[in-house]
């Protein structure tokens, strides 16, 4: 019992230490550069100042963090529902596959940076435009991951199920769906990292509350330190959600996680 636990601890440690070392080195260089050149904090605050000011304004930042988290959760949930529905529809209908695939790709050519302000003109400062932006940036990798996961099903496995007399739905349920889950979780991780950034970006373009509008306001009053403090919070949120997908993966497809390690 203790040997595998120790092994896992060592693996986790060896995964965390190298990036941490890089971050610390970067912060030291940054701090040293700011103090030795005497650059004004409105232009470039030192990391210590970012932390100090961020901590002093922690309640304000927190009141803007909660709405961003909410928008991210709702937007990502919609994106998940949309991508699952699309991927399943495409898997069951060759016609839909041909009809939808080019449209999916085309949806990724929309420049979000241009469309986000328009969405706010059309739908106001409420939830809807932000949910749309998040869905637009995250549903594509997830839908593609699912579609390709379904399609990667071994032809021989399909034949085996057919020889058992399985219907199309049974083949989906017994083979295609579970077989696609590893590729779904890979896509989910890509999607979730876009989700927080997407939410912040949508808020930046116009909102009543949230980290995005907070950054925009602080930038306009030259509080570069608070902008950067909000960036740190955004990064922590993304990393946290990324970690959650790993936990969920371990719960849903333990067989795959084990096999990958083994």
């Amino acid at each position: 019992m203790s040997a595998p636990t120790r092994g896992r601890a060592r693996r986790t440690l060896s995964a965390v230490v190298p990036p941490l070392v890089l971050v610390v080195v970067g912060l030291v260089v940054w701090q040293w550069a700011v103090t030795s050149t005497g650059v004004r904090p409105q232009v470039l605050p030192s990391p210590l100042r970012v932390v100090e000011q961020g901590w002093r304004n922690r309640e304000l930042i927190w009141t803007h963090t909660v709405p961003t988290l909410q928008v991210t959760a709702i937007g990502f949930a919609c994106s998940l529902a949309l991508s699952w529905a699309l991927a399943i529809a495409v898997d069951f209908s060759r016609w839909l596959r041909r009809a939808l695939t080019p449209l999916l790709v085309a949806s990724q050519t929309i420049p979000i940076i241009v469309i986000a302000p328009l969405l706010i003109i059309w739908f106001g400062f409420g939830l809807l435009p932000k949910v749309l932006v998040i869905a637009l940036v995250t549903f594509f990798p997830i839908a593609i991951g699912l579609i390709e996961g379904f399609a990667a099903t071994d032809r021989k496995a399909t034949d085996l199920l057919r020889s058992m007399g399985a219907s199309r739905w049974q083949r989906f349920r017994y083979v295609r769906l579970p077989g696609a889950l590893p590729s779904f979780f890979t896509a989910l991780r890509i999607g979730i990292t876009y989700a927080v950034t997407g939410a912040v970006f949508a808020e930046y373009a116009g909102a009543k509350e949230g980290l995005g509008i907070f950054m925009s306001l602080q930038k306009n009053s030259f509080r570069t330190d608070l902008v950067l403090a909000a960036v740190v919070v955004t990064a922590l949120l993304s990393i946290g959600l990324f970690g959650v997908t790993h936990l969920v993966e371990r719960l849903v497809i333990p067989w795959h996680v084990k096999r990958r390690r083994g």
Binding site: D154, K156, A157, L160, S163, Y174, P178, I253
Partner: peptide, 11 residues
């Protein structure tokens, strides 16, 4: 029908 690969599903 028994195929050449065992096709046992890991899940």
């Amino acid at each position: 029908y028994m195929p050449q690969q065992d096709l046992l599903f890991p899940w």
